[in-house]
Design a protein around this nucleic acid. Structure first.
Length: 661
RNA sequence: GCCGACUUGGCGCAAUGGUAGCGCACCGCUCUUGUAAAGCGGGGGUUGCGGGUUCGAGUCCCGCAGUCGGCUCCA
C-alpha cells in the first residue's frame, strides 16, 4: 500500500509500522495525518506521515512525557501507597503529581532518580492499549484520581488533557523484556518506544505541593519537577542556563550592586531604594516624564488614601476588597454608654489611581474640545498581595505605577489607541527592550465577572484588535483574560535571555465612566459619555526596574548606570590629572568618581568591573604626557591613548544616545 | 492563603548537644606606574523572634515572622 512519507509517496507492506520507516534512532514518533502517534502505529493506506525527531518541540515533549512516566513508576515502586495525579511535559521538563502521606524530601528525590536510572536500564517497552471506559475503570481501580479523570469528559479536564484527551481512552503499559507488565498508566500518549530511550539526560529538580486539578478547594498533591533532554550534554547546557539566569536575578543583583532592599522592619513586599538604585529610578522617571510631556499628557497628583465611598462607587470594594489593605477606621466618637455620637469614616490605601483621575475629570464640566484628555501620574498604590506570591520587585505590596487615564470620544478611540500603542512601544525601545508581541485579553462568554453591555464589549474588542494588528506585531489571543470593566492589549517583551515579561497594558473601560456618570458636551450641544483608556507603561516602576536589571544582568547602559565613569590612576600622583577631567564631565551631568583609595590599580579595575561601571578611565605618565586616557570596558576590552576631548565625546554621546557599551 | 525547605557579623559560608569560626567587605598602618584580588594588624555576632527539653542548645521540640521553590491568585 502507499502512504505519503515526509511529503513523498512511499510504498509499505501491509502491517508495517513506524519502526519500518526509519533507521534513525532519534526519530521517536510519527505525525500521522497531523496526529502524534507512537512508532508502533500500524500504517494505513494513504496515511500522511511525517517524522518526529527527538529534538523537535514535539519530540522533546514526548521524551519528557515518557520521563515523567518512568518517574511515576519509580515513585510507585518506592512508595507503594502513592496515588497518581497527572504528569504532563512542560517547558524544558515535566512533572508528576502524587498523593502521598508525607511530602518528598530531597533524599527521596535522589532515591527516585536512582530508581529511574535502573528502570531506563531495563529497557521496558511502552505499549499502548485502547480501552473502553469500563476497562479503564477496572485497570485504574486503585487510582482514585485517574478514575475521576475517566469520569470527566475530555473538555472538562483542563490540565489533565495529557491523560485522557479527546476521543477514546488509552493506557500505556511498561512491559519487561519477558512480556510481563511492570507498570501502567492512563495516558493519551504517544511515548518513546522504550524506557532506554529516555537516556541519561534527565534530572529531578524539586518537589512542591500543587492543588489537584489546579483548584484551591481541592486537596494538595505532591508534585515532583524534572527536566529531560536527548543527551547529557544538553542537560548540562540547560543547567548552565539555569545558573546564568540565577546570576542575573534582580534580587541578588539588588544586594550586590546596593540598589534596593526589603527591610523586615517595614513589612513584606515593601521596598526601599538605596542611592545607587535611586538614581537609576530617577533617571527612568525623568525620561518617562519628558516623553509624556512631549506626548501631550497632563500631569496630575493624587493622595495615597481615600474614604471608602470612592472605591464603593468604582466597584473595587465589591470586586477586589480582599486584595486591598484593610481600612483605617477614623473619626467615630461614642458617648459613655457606647452609643455612636459621631459617624466615622473608613479610609483605604488606594489599590488603583483611576478613581482619583476620574474625580479630576469631574471637577468641572468638560467640552469635546478638551478631549482626548490625557492624565498622567506616578501613582503609588498598595495591594494586599497574598504572602506566597510576593517576589522581589516584580510582585510587591507597595508600588508606583506610571499610570495614565485617557478620556476620549467614541470617534477618537481608534486613533488614540494607535497613538498610545506607538508611544508605549517607542518608550520601551528607548529603555533597551525591542522584542515584543501583543496579547489581546477578551471577555469570556457567560462569565459574570465581566460587566457591561456585550455589544460595547464586542465593538471595543474589535477596535483593539484592529489597532493591535496594525502594529504589525505578533498578536496572541487571551480569552477570558480581560479586566472586569473592559478588554485590554498587553505588550509582552522578551528580555536578553528570551524570557517574556508582561510590560504595558492598554485597557478599555466603559464601566467606570458609567459608574461615575462622566459626561462631556459634544459639538452638538448634547451630553455624551467619554470612554476611558487605562494605560500603564512600565506596569510598575519597581517591576520594570527588576526586569531591566535582569535584562541587562546589571550591566546598565551608561545613561541608566548609577556610576557612569570611574577614574583609576595608574599611581597616586595621577589622581589630580583624572580629577580635572572628572570636573569637566561633571559639568555635563556625568556621574563620575575617581578612585583615590590605596588599593592597587588591578584591584580597582576588578572592583569597578564587578560593580558594572560602564567606563573605567585609566591614566598614567604616558597619558598625562600626551593628554590622553585609556578606556577599560566591562567585557575586559580596552581602548588606549584616547585624546581627552575624544574620550569626553565618547562618554557624552553614549549617554545622550542611550547606547549600550 | 496552602505545601515544603531555609534563616549564623554588611555579603557569601563553616561549626558529632560541650568556649561561634573563615573569606570578602569595613577600619588602621606599610606599599604604589599600565588593564580582574599587595602585605600586616584591628574592630564587628545575645546564631530571625518567643517558648520548651537538657547539667549544657547555633544544633533537638513547639509557636511566630521573614526568605526561597512551587500551587492558587495577579483589578
Amino acid at each position: 500500500m502507499n502512504i505519503l512519507l515526509d511529503g513523498e509517496t512511499h510504498q509499505v507492506s501491509e502491517g508495517a509500522t513506524g519502526f519500518d520507516l526509519y533507521e534513525d534512532r532519534s526519530i521517536v514518533a510519527l505525525l500521522v495525518n497531523g496526529e502524534p502517534k507512537d512508532l508502533s502505529y500500524q500504517l494505513k493506506e494513504s496515511d500522511d506521515v511525517t517524522k518526529v525527531h527527538v529534538s523537535s518541540d514535539l519530540g522533546l515533549s514526548i521524551l519528557r512525557h515518557s520521563a515523567a512516566h518512568v518517574m511515576a513508576q519509580a515513585v510507585q515502586e518506592l512508595f507503594d501507597e502513592a496515588k497518581l495525579g497527572i504528569g504532563p511535559p512542560i517547558t524544558d521538563g515535566f512533572y508528576f503529581d502524587f498523593d502521598v502521606a508525607d511530602p518528598f524530601t530531597p533524599e527521596d528525590l535522589k532515591k527516585i532518580e536512582k530508581r529511574m536510572k535502573e528502570l531506563v536500564g531495563k529497557s521496558q517497552r511502552f505499549v499502548r492499549r485502547e480501552v473502553s471506559d469500563q476497562e479503564a475503570k477496572e485497570l485504574m481501580k486503585n487510582e482514585p484520581y485517574k478514575l475521576e479523570l475517566i469520569g470527566l469528559k475530555s473538555e472538562d479536564v483542563g490540565e489533565g488533557s495529557a491523560e485522557v484527551g479527546a476521543g477514546g481512552l488509552s493506557v500505556y503499559e511498561n512491559l519487561n523484556p519477558d512480556g510481563t507488565v511492570a507498570w501502567m498508566d492512563l495516558c493519551r500518549g504517544p511515548h518513546l518506544p522504550n524506557t532506554r530511550m529516555v537516556g541519561k539526560g534527565f534530572s529531578l529538580l524539586r518537589s512542591a505541593a500543587a492543588y489537584w486539578r489546579g483548584n484551591e478547594a481541592n486537596k494538595q498533591l505532591q508534585r515532583i519537577y524534572g527536566t529531560a533532554w536527548p543527551t547529557t550534554e544538553e542537560l548540562e547546557d540547560y543547567k548552565v542556563r539555569l545558573e546564568e539566569a540565577a546570576k542575573r536575578d534582580h534580587r541578588k543583583l539588588g544586594v550586590e550592586l546596593d540598589l534596593f532592599s526589603f527591610p523586615d522592619e517595614i513589612g513584606s513586599g515593601l521596598a526601599v531604594f538605596h542611592p545607587k538604585g535611586g538614581i537609576i529610578r530617577k533617571v527612568m522617571e525623568d525620561y518617562s516624564r519628558e516623553a509624556h510631556e512631549k506626548g501631550g499628557y497632563e500631569f496630575v497628583y493624587s493622595p495615597h488614601i481615600t474614604k471608602s465611598n470612592l472605591f464603593e462607587t468604582s466597584g473595587h470594594l465589591s470586586w477586589y476588597s480582599e486584595g486591598m489593605f484593610p481600612p483605617m477606621k477614623l473619626d467615630a466618637e461614642y458617648d459613655e454608654n457606647g452609643a455612636l455620637k459621631r459617624q466615622g469614616a473608613d479610609y483605604y490605601l488606594k489599590p488603583m489611581n483611576c478613581p482619583f483621575h476620574i474625580l479630576i475629570f469631574k471637577s468641572r464640566s468638560r467640552s469635546y474640545r478638551e478631549l482626548p484628555l490625557r492624565m498622567f501620574e506616578f501613582g503609588s498604590v498598595y495591594r494586599y498581595e497574598k504572602s506566597g506570591v510576593l517576589h522581589g520587585l516584580t510582585r510587591v505590596r507597595g508600588m508606583t505605577q506610571d499610570d495614565a487615564h485617557l478620556f476620549v470620544t467614541q470617534d477618537d478611540l481608534e486613533n488614540e489607541l494607535k497613538g498610545v500603542l506607538d508611544f508605549v512601544l517607542n518608550l520601551l525601545r528607548d529603555y533597551g527592550l525591542n522584542d515584543f508581541y501583543l496579547e489581546l485579553s477578551t471577555r469570556e462568554e457567560g462569565n459574570e465577572k465581566f460587566v457591561g453591555d456585550h455589544k460595547i464589549w464586542d465593538s471595543a474588542t474589535k477596535t483593539l484588535e484592529s489597532v493591535a494588528k496594525a502594529s504589525g506585531l505578533e498578536l496572541i489571543p487571551d480569552p477570558g483574560g480581560a479586566a472586569f470593566y473592559g478588554p485590554k492589549i498587553s505588550v509582552q517583551a522578551r528580555d536578553a535571555i528570551g524570557r517574556t515579561w508582561q510590560m504595558s497594558t492598554i485597557q478599555l473601560d466603559f464601566n467606570l465612566p458609567e459608574r461615575f456618570d462622566l459626561e462631556y458636551v459634544g459639538s452638538d450641544g448634547d451630553r455624551h459619555r467619554p470612554i476611558m483608556i487605562h494605560r500603564a507603561l512600565f506596569g510598575s516602576i519597581e517591576r520594570f526596574f527588576g526586569v531591566l536589571t535582569e535584562h541587562y544582568a546589571g550591566h546598565f547602559p551608561p545613561w541608566l548606570a548609577p556610576v557612569q565613569v570611574v577614574g583609576v590612576p595608574i599611581a597616586d600622583e595621577f589622581g589630580d590629572y583624572l580629577e580635572a577631567i572628572a570636573d569637566d564631565l561633571r559639568q555635563h551631568g556625568v556621574r563620575i568618581e575617581i578612585d583615590h583609595s590605596d588599593n592597587r590599580m588591578q584591584k580597582k579595575i576588578r572592583d569597578h568591573t564587578m560593580q558594572r561601571v560602564p567606563f573605567i578611565l585609566l591614566a598614567g605618565a604616558r597619558d598625562q604626557e600626551a593628554k590622553t586616557v585609556s578606556f577599560r570596558y566591562r567585557d575586559g576590552s580596552q581602548e588606549n591613548d584616547v585624546p581627552i576631548d575624544k574620550a569626553k565625546e565618547m562618554i557624552l554621546s553614549a549617554i545622550r544616545e542611550k547606547r549600550q557599551v
